[in-house]
Structures are given as C-alpha cells and as structure tokens.
Amino acid sequence: MQLTNRSKQVSNKEMTLAEKMYLPAIAQGLAITIKHFFQKKPTIQYPEVKRYLGPIFRGHHVLKRDEEGRERCTACGLCSLACPAEAISMVAAERKKGEENLYREEKYAAVYEINMLRCIFCGLCEEACPKQAVYLRHDRFVPVFTERDQVIYGKDRLVEQLDDRYVRTGSEVRATPTEPTLSRSAT
C-alpha cells in the first residue's frame, strides 16, 4: 500500500566513495536544517495570542435569557438526563406572582449547577434542551481552576448577563476570543 510518494525503498547496494565520505550528504542535511532555521514559525503564543476556534467550538456554558430578558430554563431536567458525565444538577421552583418578568415559564430552576470538573464539553445538554435555554459558548473558555470549591458553577456564573448577550447565528460569526494583550512579542 502506497501512502505517500516520498517513501524510499531500502537498498543494500555498495555505497559509492562520495556516499562513504558522508560529507555531501551532511552538507545536504545542514542546508535543510538551516533553511528551517530561518523559516517563519507557525507557533501561536497561546496565553497571549488566541486563535479563532470556529463557530462550533464548545466552551463555557450559558443559560440564555429570551428577548425580554427572562430566563428560558424551565427546569425540566432533560439536560441533566442527557448529560453523560452527570455534571448538571438543579432544584426546580414555581414562579410566584410578579416574577413574570424574571422567568419565562411557570416553573424555573431556582438552583442550576454544573460541575466543571465532571463536564466533558460534549454539548449534549445543548441538544437536549427543549427550551433553547442552555448553550455552550464558542467564544469563551472555562477558566482554569486550582481549588475544588471553584469547580461548581452556579446560576451566578451561568446565566447570561443582559449587557453581555451571546449570539451565534450562521457559521460566519467571528466573536473571536483573541485578546492580543501581547506582553511578549512573538519570538
């Protein structure tokens, strides 16, 4: 089976004098490496430069609000059921009178928690949700945590802020996470 056209057959034939002297081959090799020495490096300096990961990247979870700013989640538990890592838990509550501008449905999630240490960012919760309430943002990472008490994300960190709405329409969206605060130059 031929995979590339660069494969060379091994041959056992006697080496010529030029090959025995190694020097021409060494010069050839040196030329190749020095060419690479001066080539542009493809490295992206990660924490300082971030590249666009595409519109279907699965990052930080967000609990959406609707156009009027009401939380969409109705605490049906389907996301929790769909989650293969059992990372989601919630406590449902009934909407009181006067709270119609806060919650869209009559039942809402009083507590909604995702354990980011368990989550595998598969996106199945997003697919399971019948109310289009939970999404995985394509433009934001879950930040690194170092302590166990930082890993459970409650509603305070999941519900969408009104001044920071998340939209993902079409495949052209480029809400790039690039924050080129280049403290170090790309060397």
Binding site: Q2, T16, L17
Partner: peptide
C-alpha cells in the same frame, strides 16, 4: 584527488533501480 575519485565512483555506480512498491 578525493573529489575526483568520489565523482568518478558515483558516475560509475549502477543507477539505483527503484522498484515500485507492491500494494
């Protein structure tokens, strides 16, 4: 002398026959 010898020996060497790999 060495360069001349090397050139001569590689000119005289039989061409390497590259057999196509069997697939």
């Amino acid at each position: 002398v060495m360069v001349v010898l090397a050139v001569m020996s590689s000119a005289r060497a039989p061409k390497r026959v590259v057999q196509p790999q069997r697939s």
